[in-house]
Nucleic acid binder design. Structure first.
Lengths: 208, 208
DNA sequence: CGAAAATATGAGTGAAAGCTCACAAACGCT
DNA sequence: AGCGTTTGTGAGCTTTCACTCATATTTTCG
């Protein structure tokens, strides 16, 4: 009489777990990631995810009410650390230092699993029918905005535009580099940071 | 005994047409575009495309051997004009003028149908199992490379990297702007051009 | 006009994939 | 050891969707 109110006597989406079930959930997410990486969305289906995870489809649906929930959970798993890193760049002692930290975190993230990052980023646009937590892009742009204002560069609408542009530059460059198979993180960081500085200069937001 | 060799007595992919059939093909492509725009890949299926085009599925398969062929044709339709524009920026009298033309073409393209452009760009990565014609990204980067070398800026590997970076910057900024619903093409062009100039300066490829 | 060629139709087929449910095994606790 | 709870299983139901084909309509042209 407790919680299993309505017709179905199955209440999936069992909130986490208390033992080996955590491993099951982890295995499912990793299997989803791997399948996305080497077959793309085309080969991404729940039956194969379960198989690859070494788990039955039944188990999969104990923890995820539907396919999108898996994708969302994977997105969160991959995205949260980067979001957290973004939110800390405000503490940097200088603007340039802040930009460097920002870029460094973004590059590390993208070069770790480039294909997965790209797919999830694309999927993020489709998922948030319910607004959910802030999209990565918003978090990043906001972080850059704080960084700018905290170091006396720009305010208001212009600064907000600049923040979005800068985020777009970072994302565009890093994404393309990942697609091209680039692996030298340091070189990439240097170029991306240069691009951001150049933009800020040209827009008269900072002078060098 | 002529061409319908093997087992099937149907030879779809009737090369274009000679009358109203051209309209049918056009209607199919436009229907595909509209469905992609307002339902995304999820709602993109051949039955609905045919229905929206006011055509039977049978007709659809007279002209396209499979679903991917439709997507490819649509991609070509949307992409070719931009490719052509890219290939002409080399004729510009100065580097800056060339960059402006490049950016202007790209902005116009993206702001016309932002959602469609984004979806097709993503799909492009999956389709070319057979190399096909050059991807838009390659064409764009190559055009920028020619522009640089023709105006005495950079050569070799560094210039190639710079070209790719510049293309990535343009694409990243314009894509994000489209997603955010920006409509002021001139303002966007100015910012993108500024970003490119700034990058070139910071990388010591040009000096202002 | 009349016949061949081109174009159009849409019910139907087969396969893929999301998801359910009745049941079984493993675990936690006293 | 015994018993309730949590976790796991997988055959199979159902829907969606790419694609076919036998037939019908329209166009072309002598």
């Amino acid at each position: 009489m407790a919680r299993k109110t309505s017709k179905n006597h199955i209440e999936p989406r069992k909130t986490p777990a208390q033992a080996r079930s955590a491993e099951t959930v982890a295995a499912i997410l990793e299997a989803a990631a791997r399948i996305l990486e080497d077959k793309g969305f085309r080969g991404y289906n729940t039956n194969d995810v379960a198989a690859r995870a070494g788990v039955s489809i039944g188990s999969l649906y104990q923890y995820f009410p539907n396919k999108d929930a898996i994708t969302k959970a994977l997105l969160r798993r991959e995205t949260e650390p980067l979001s957290a890193a973004f939110e800390q760049v405000g503490d940097a002692p200088s603007l340039v230092e802040g930009l460097q930290r920002f870029v460094s975190a973004a590059v590390a993230h993208q070069l770790r699993r480039p294909v997965l990052a790209r797919l999830l980023d694309f999927e993020e646009a489709r998922l948030p029918l319910q607004a959910e937590n802030g999209a990565l892009g918003e978090v990043g742009a906001k972080a850059l905005g704080r960084l700018l204002s905290r170091h006396g560069a720009g305010r208001g609408a212009a600064a907000r535009t600049a923040s979005h542009d800068m985020f777009a530059i970072v994302k565009g460059m890093i994404d393309a580099a990942g697609e091209r198979g680039e692996t030298d993180a340091q070189a990439l960081e240097a170029r991306v940071t240069a691009a951001m500085s150049g933009y800020l200069q040209q827009m008269n937001i900072i002078d060098l």
